[in-house]
Nucleic acid binder design. Structure first.
Length: 145
DNA sequence: ATTCTGACTTGCT
DNA sequence: AAGCAAGCCAGAA
């Protein structure tokens, strides 16, 4: 019964693990979903090691993979057929380093059920989870009095 | 309490 | 497209 409140790190990792193959979210998106912290906090969590989550599906606001991991991230994109942005013709460096994900095409657009799952993670982070046993299901939406 | 740091963002050149 | 500065949020020193 791990239905206790999630700490920030767990919440972030949960979200990341929910991103489908071929889709991506930005650090900022995740912070927004959790309604806590900012892009940097999410980045900090991710930097602690992959923890078995698809880290390459989390990118910067401009569509570029996390610093230092561009090369291996691109391999995953090719593998998952993630929509990449066309390489600038002028650029000499048409390498993995210049490649960016096309956010307008690959950004994850969660279906209703998925949004629900995301909200559950947020709720679990916010206070505590009250699913199960006692059956008190009032997860206050977080708005302060 | 204050300062530094970072898998970040945005806006301006 | 690229580089730079400032803003931002939390945790660590």
């Amino acid at each position: 019964m791990r239905e206790r409140a999630l700490d920030y790190e767990e919440a972030v990792l949960d979200i990341v693990s929910l991103i489908p193959a071929g889709r991506v979210l930005t650090y900022g998106d995740i912070a927004e979903i959790l309604e806590k912290g900012g892009p940097r906090q999410v980045g900090t969590v991710m930097s602690r090691g992959d923890a078995g989550v698809p880290w390459w599906r989390v990118l910067r606001a401009d569509g570029s993979p996390p610093q230092g991991l561009e090369a291996s991230a691109v391999e995953h994109y090719l593998e998952e057929s993630t929509a990449l942005r066309p390489v600038a013709n002028r650029s000499r460096r048409a390498d993995a380093r210049t490649r960016r994900v096309d956010l307008s095409k690959s950004r994850w657009d969660p279906a209703p059920a998925e949004q629900c799952a995301l909200q559950q993670v947020r709720a679990a982070l916010k206070n505590d989870v009250r699913i199960g046993a006692s059956g008190l299901s009032e997860a206050d939406d977080g708005v302060d009095p």
